[in-house]
Amino acid sequence: MNLQAETLRKIDEVIPHYPVKRSAALPLLHLVQEDQGFISNEAIEWIADRLEIQPINVYELVTFYPMFRQKPIGRRHIKVCRTLSCAIMGGYRTCAEFQKQFGTGLGEVSPDGEVTVEFVECLASCGTAPVVMIDDHLHEKVDAARARELSDKIKGEAKTANR
């Protein structure tokens, strides 16, 4: 486990917040996912060891919560809302456009390793549906055209980053 010193510090800090060590499992999982992008089996075992519980107990949590990922994702995470309002306003079309732009399937890492496109449940901005969240930034009223724009932007940034 190669966790950053900052993550380790946060972990050490969060554990004593709980009367039972086991209760710190969720915060630890979040911290580890922030650090590594996903939760590997190695991470599960590390956390279990840290909390003096069995890996299966952590594994149960990881498989339950959809926001915990067990596989690495692309550098950017595109989350398209598919709950009612967004779905009515064309969330599915938006998602399809993103997939087309990056030539990838739902939930997969795109071939260039740049993005992962996923559906998520409500992002709490129904008034400006359809909404898309790219990493931590919310983009409102993302129709197909806007999706193309955003895709181009991401591609452009990727190029500069690679250079």
Partner: peptide, 21 residues
Amino acid sequence: DDVLGFVDRGSYSTLTCYPGK
């Protein structure tokens, strides 16, 4: 020997061993 648990809780809850155990 705590190796069993439920994963994918919900409609597809599955009893399983921790991977590798």
